[in-house]
Amino acid sequence: MSVLLEARNITRILPGEIPVTLVRDVSVSFRAGEFISITGPSGSGKSSLLYLLGLLDKPTQGSVLIEGRDTAAMDEEELANLRLERLGFVFQFHFLLPEFTALENVTLPMRRLGKLSEKERRARGEKIMSELGLGDQLNKLPKQMSGGQCQRVAVARALANDPVLILTDEPTGNLDTVSSKVVQDILKNLAHQQNRAVVAVTHDMNFAGMADRRIHLVDGKIV
C-alpha cells in the first residue's frame, strides 16, 4: 500500500511569553486503506497533530508530505488546493453552513474545485448522501436535521471531491450511541472498502479499538 501522508519529525511550538510545545518530534505515516486512531489525554496534542497533518497549521520544525510532496515550501493557495482535492475533514461539531441545504453543503467543495457541471455535482452529491443513508434529507437545512444526520452530512461533504485521506477530530463526540455507531462504521468502511486513509482523533476507547493502528500521544509525543 502506498504512503499517502507522512510526517517527518514535526514539532509545533506556540510562540508567546512562555512558548507552548503542542507536538514534539512526531514522525508518522499513513497508507491507503488504513484506519488509524489517535488517542491521548486532554491537552496531549491530538487535535494539534491532526491540524498539522491536515495542512491547517504549519510545523515549527519538520515536514509533512502528501503523496510524497513536501508541503513545507508551499504557499497558501497550493495548500488550499491540496486540502480541496486530496483531504477531507470531519470535526466534533458538524459545522455545516446554516444557510445551505444538506445537498448544497455537500456540493460546496465540488463547486470550489470547479471540475463538474451543476448537473454532475448534484448527481454526485445525491449519490454520496444516499450511500450514507441521507437520500431523503437532500433539501433540508441543518437546523431541520438531527445531530447524527448533520454529522453524516459533514462526512458526505468531506467525501465530495473524492479525497484520499479523511481526517476526523472526535467525529462522534457529540452523538448518541446509535448515531456514533453509524458514523464509526461509515468511517471504517471508507478506509477498508474505498481504500482511503482515515485518521480519527478520539477519546472513545471503543472507537479507537476499531482502528487498524492506534497512535497514543502524551505531552505531544507518541508513546
Binding site: 486540502r83 475533514f89 459545522f95 453552513l97 460546496l108 467543495p109 474545485l113
Partner: peptide, 14 residues
Amino acid sequence: RDISIMKSMGFTAS
C-alpha cells in the same frame, strides 16, 4: 466558524 470550515475545505483567503 463558517469561514474556518470553508478554508479547511480548500477555500483561499482571496
